[in-house]
């Protein structure tokens, strides 16, 4: 399986004003690549929640987008820390450590990671104080 489209995006720490721009770019790029709208919507939701998480909880990071030759879309969100202290709790709907600023934006309801997991075809997360890597994939066949 080879990548036929690769893009790297940078998400800046605490950049609330531009939150969502990367996800918007990802959605536009994949739309142009012909990804069906139903799966594209799932990808956009997962990308947006993950981007928001990077801004709210992490010190920024990078997003790698790959469209594979079999139609699979892979997204890798990598941040430099501070890591998720209790991953099990973070995956529990309703559990949140978000700041007041994040809540004022309409986020921090404790639905981010559960949402991302629900809409993704594969979901893998590794976290330590040195950083978190979230790898998601979506099959265009599962529209």
């Amino acid at each position: 399986m080879a990548s036929i489209l690769h893009e790297r995006y940078v998400v800046e720490r605490d950049d609330y004003a531009n939150a969502g721009k990367v996800s918007s770019s990802i959605k536009e790029k994949l739309k142009l690549a012909g990804i069906p709208s139903a799966v594209l919507r799932r990808i956009a939701v997962a990308a947006y929640e993950s981007e928001i998480n990077m801004i709210i909880h992490a010190w920024g990071g990078t997003v790698d987008l790959d469209l594979m030759d079999d139609g699979t879309v892979r997204l890798v969100f990598k941040d430099p820390g501070p890591g998720i202290p209790d991953l099990e709790k973070a995956l529990t709907p309703g559990w949140s450590t978000a700041s007041e600023e994040a809540r004022n934006l309409g986020f921090g309801a404790g639905m981010g990671l559960p949402n991302i997991k629900r809409v993704s075809d594969t979901f893998d997360i590794i976290s330590s104080p040195e950083g978190t890597t979230l790898t998601l994939s979506f099959s265009a066949a599962n529209a």
Partner: peptide, 8 residues
């Protein structure tokens, strides 16, 4: 008013 709820 919760955008995560809307997204879900």
């Amino acid at each position: 008013d919760l955008m995560s709820d809307a997204l879900a």
